[in-house]
């Protein structure tokens, strides 16, 4: 139930956004729970974008892990 998958915002029209999930799969989702811009990645659950996927935070996490694990 809590499965949510990342996708990229292609278009926004009011509360709705067209999200590209890759491999040619696109779907209209409700984006009213997030302040999102075209081109950003979101996490989508049951037809609703529930959060923005922060690419910079992902990079920082990986960098931090490298440091911790090399110690």
């Amino acid at each position: 139930m809590c499965l949510a998958i990342p996708g990229k915002i292609m278009e926004i029209d009011g509360d709705l956004a067209k999200v590209d999930f890759g491999d040619g799969t696109a779907r209209e989702v409700n984006s009213s729970l997030v302040d999102v811009k075209v081109g950003q990645y979101v996490i989508v659950h049951a037809g609703f974008a529930i959060e923005i996927l922060d690419e910079n935070a992902a990079k920082e996490t990986l960098k931090l892990w490298d440091e911790i694990l090399e110690r």
């Binding site: 139930m1 809590c2 409700n30 659950h45 049951a46 037809g47 609703f48």
Partner: peptide
């Protein structure tokens, strides 16, 4: 797949549509 589909179904009929809503805080906002 989504509660939105259930609402769209309700718009197309006079029948009573009952959405059985399960899920934790992830799903409840929808």
């Amino acid at each position: 797949y989504s509660i939105t589909d259930a609402v769209n179904l309700a718009k197309k009929t006079d029948d009573d549509i009952v959405f059985v809503a399960i899920g934790f805080e992830t799903t409840a906002p929808s």
